[in-house]
Design a binder for these strands. Structure first.
Lengths: 113, 113
DNA sequence: CAGGTATATACCTATAGAGGTATATTCAAT
DNA sequence: ATTGAATATACCTCTATAGGTATATACCTG
């Protein structure tokens, strides 16, 4: 999970991933579209590949990179564990809990809020 | 989006977020549970707060931090745009497309694969 | 096999940011 | 007011990593 996040949390790699969403592309194409030097593209792609976010397929001298679904799925699954945070109106419930804790601890003293 | 990813892509911040999933906690509590020095915890929380991943509520000298749903939702929405990657068996479809492209370009020469 | 093209890699440099330590700040309690 | 506790911040140092340049490697074409 951390590897996935680290790979995505870099501006140019993020751009590469967004570009690859439109389909597989060779290194040179990525570079020219994103105005990145070739070695940099290759290095970023290496990181993305090690994070299992992309896959390569050789086509003659070209290397065609494409997104791999699996890592995105895992990221999605991880996020699901936080779903309640935005689905249930949890802020209000939390406030209620805080109120109760406050009363318990300070035995009925008035909340400062 | 990048701010969110950057904030999460750091081991200790990731741990803090995971811990906060179990509920709001004051700084000191986080530090002792994760074996982190207090200033480091405060600094990480600052980053998380600037990324709108957490919120603070003062309680006397304590600062109680909690996760904010909104950023997680946005991350989730962003990920949704990649859903097809893992839901439709896209690898096979991609291969088909590649085959067709190959034939077009090289006029019927056999695929190396 | 010679030349050209696409990509990977090695190396250097510069910088962002994480940890550590000391200190400032804020509030409660006495 | 003074003290102590919880937290924030300032400052320093150090390392990981991104960019840049040069070069190696692999493959197609003639």
């Amino acid at each position: 999970m951390l590897d996935t996040l680290t790979a995505l949390a870099e501006p140019n790699r993020y751009r590469i991933v967004e570009l690859l969403r439109s389909g597989p592309r060779p290194v040179g194409d990525i570079g020219s579209r994103l105005r990145l030097a070739q070695p940099q593209v290759s290095k970023h792609l290496r990181v993305l590949k090690e994070a299992r976010l992309v896959d390569v397929e050789p086509r003659a001298q070209h290397r065609v990179y494409r997104l791999r679904g699996e890592s995105f799925r895992q990221l999605h699954d991880w996020l699901e564990r936080y779903r309640r945070l935005w689905e249930e109106r949890f802020d209000e419930l939390d406030e209620l809990i805080e109120e109760l804790k406050d009363k318990e601890t300070h035995h009925g003293r008035k909340s400062r809020k």
